[in-house]
């Protein structure tokens, strides 16, 4: 008889692992991928594939060079790649997408110690770096015309006059933007899947979106027309990167609070900053900046919202 294994209890573990969680996120992102290919054509698929390949390869090579155990198998780099790609306009040169992937994986994730150690969301920072470095190509939103040729057009957040899409178009994704953000229904399906699978809780996405909705509604009420204000607030939550950001980027475990109340505060903060940038800032969109800012506050939020142990006595000061 070989020796018995000795270990500390429990001797039983749930089936959920980091890999199954990441796989669930990938599955949840598939409806949006299908939508992006239908809306923007096959180049959306190409960009996604390039970002995923670049992220995975960057992580693999970094681990190899640093003689660290290879963490590609946990699929977290795949998720980063997909999310970064979803934040890019369809016409972005491939080499720029690769550069963004390298920044996300090497600079933001690995240099801080790899999975679980980064303080900011890699895909968000990758996007912001690209936005700063290549503001031309990064804000050159294009859509295929009737012949399938990519032509520049406005995004809903800056559109005026006849360019303004209807709410239904926004909901279905029939409008311009970065490749993964336009189809609200596809993103919501993914979000519901993640909640059913208990990968994320409703707190961050619902509070984030609700905050933007309420603030936009109040701001639009100045016009005096409640129906118009409701319509405007709905437009604000469907347009731009809010759905993608609130459901998939703000809910990143590593960079968002782990307490329930912390998640609520995080959602409110993201909503406030997004609204402020959209309303008064010089950028049309504020979702990524809001998430990055709240990422930085996350350790403090965790501390403020620490749970109260059952029966715990008051701490001596």
């Amino acid at each position: 008889m070989s020796k018995l294994i000795l270990s500390v209890s429990p001797h039983l573990r749930s089936r959920t692992s980091t890999t199954t969680i990441m796989l669930d996120v990938v599955i949840a992102l598939i409806p949006a991928l299908i939508a992006s290919v239908l809306i923007f054509g096959l180049r959306a698929l190409l960009l996604t594939a390039v970002c995923v390949a670049a992220c995975v390869l960057a992580e693999f090579l970094f681990c190899l060079l640093c003689k660290k155990p290879c963490t590609v198998g946990d699929l977290s780099a795949v998720v980063t790649g997909i999310l970064l790609a979803y934040n890019l306009p369809v016409g972005l040169p491939v080499w720029q997408a690769v550069l963004g992937s390298i920044v996300a994986i090497i600079v933001v994730k690995q240099l801080f110690g790899g999975l679980g150690m980064n303080f900011a969301n890699p895909a968000i920072v990758g996007r912001i770096v690209l936005f700063m470095a290549f503001s031309g190509t990064m804000s050159n939103y294009m859509m295929p015309d009737d012949k399938g040729e990519l032509v520049a057009s406005a995004t809903p957040l800056v559109a005026t006059g006849s360019d303004v899409p209807s709410l239904l178009d926004l909901f279905l994704g029939n409008n311009n933007g970065v490749i993964g953000e336009t189809c609200a229904i596809a993103l919501i399906i993914g979000g519901v899947y993640l909640m059913i699978r208990k990968v994320i809780t409703f707190h961050i996405p619902v509070v984030f979106i609700a905050t933007v909705f309420v603030l936009s509604f109040v701001a639009a009420l100045g016009g005096g027309d409640v129906m118009a204000a409701l319509s405007d607030a709905t437009y604000q939550i469907l347009a731009g990167g809010l759905m993608l950001g609130a459901i998939f980027m703000a809910t990143d475990y590593v960079t968002s609070p782990y307490t329930k109340w912390g998640k609520v505060i995080f959602g409110i903060g993201c909503g406030l900053i997004t609204f402020a940038i959209r309303e008064w800032g010089s950028y049309p969109e504020g979702v990524s900046f809001s998430i990055l800012f709240m990422n930085i506050l996350t350790p403090y939020i965790n501390n403020w919202t620490a749970t109260k142990p059952l029966g715990g006595a008051k701490n001596e000061k």
Binding site: I5, G116, V254
Partner: peptide
């Protein structure tokens, strides 16, 4: 049943 799965880094999921 006796073998436990290998540990990976904490992802702060809470």
């Amino acid at each position: 049943d006796a073998t436990l799965p290998e540990q990976t880094p904490c992802i702060r999921c809470g």
